[in-house]
């Protein structure tokens, strides 16, 4: 019994100062966080427990009391709503990245062919994130409406529950075209053949991705601070985000 107790204490001891952070993370940022998290975890000793979903779904879960420490949303609207509901640590709402939308077709050979597909007859199967729940979906719809493609492509568009499902619909060959997040293409470039075109940021409402602290702790503040460091921001730019 005594050696077991000793082992247990030994196992526990180094974890006492380090915390486990539960992070609600928008679909577009989940694979990015997974890629960059080891840098934070090794530097701080804390561990991350990410839960990913559409910003709308995570928002609904947080309103219902989901036990997250930090919310990395894909828009500014939901964090602002949480703030006005008094559900965030005051003064922590911060823009950590500006999202970029990319039009992608695994079958296209060049950008002209890619853009021509938007007007093809019969209309191609297009995958977007659900505009009602996912900010990337809302941006995609706004761009398609502005360009006059919504009437032809919108009604039949496949709506992913979040941007990750929209990405999967194209990657698995089930949709010919997709409006996805640029970092998804950069991260999974080996599985993303074909041509992608980054939609100019001026052509859709900005995808201002904001973070808020939901439960105050040293560890959660450290994570928020780390996201905004020059090093992390440079890594995010390399993956296809713009810096705020």
């Amino acid at each position: 019994m005594r050696p077991l107790l000793l082992l247990w204490l030994l196992a526990l001891a180094p974890t006492l100062p380090a915390a486990e952070l539960r992070v609600a993370v928008a679909g577009n940022f989940a694979p990015v966080l997974e890629r960059l998290a080891p840098g934070f975890e090794q530097g701080s000793g804390h561990t991350l427990r990410p839960s990913s979903g559409s910003t709308g779904r995570l928002y609904a879960q947080i309103v219902q009391g989901a036990p997250f420490d930090l919310f990395l949303a894909a828009d500014a609207a939901r964090p602002a709503q949480l703030e006005s509901r008094g559900l965030v640590v005051p003064g922590t709402r911060t823009t950590y990245a500006l999202g970029r939308l990319a039009l992608w077709s695994p079958a296209a050979d060049d950008v002209d062919a890619l853009l021509a597909r938007l007007q093809a007859q019969p209309p191609p199967r297009l995958a977007i994130a659900n505009p009602r729940l996912a900010p990337y979906g809302a941006a995609a719809r706004a761009w398609l409406v502005n360009e006059g493609h919504w009437a032809a492509l919108g009604p039949g568009a496949v709506r992913g529950e979040n941007i990750a499902q929209a990405f999967h619909f194209v990657a698995s060959g089930n949709a010919e075209l997709g409006l996805v997040a640029l970092p998804q293409l950069r991260l999974f470039h080996e599985q993303t053949p074909g041509i992608a075109w980054t939609v100019p940021a001026t052509l859709h409402p900005p995808i201002e991705q904001q973070a808020v602290l939901l439960r105050d702790s040293e560890a959660a503040r450290a994570l928020l601070g780390w996201l905004l460091t020059d090093t992390t921001q440079a890594q995010l730019r390399a993956l296809g985000y713009d810096s705020p």
Partner: peptide, 20 residues
């Protein structure tokens, strides 16, 4: 794929409402 009028059935529409 949650397409209105084609594949958005009631259970999916309920899910959408709850999420929103």
């Amino acid at each position: 794929g949650n397409i209105p009028g084609e594949t958005r059935v009631a259970s999916i529409a309920i899910y959408d409402h709850v999420e929103a």
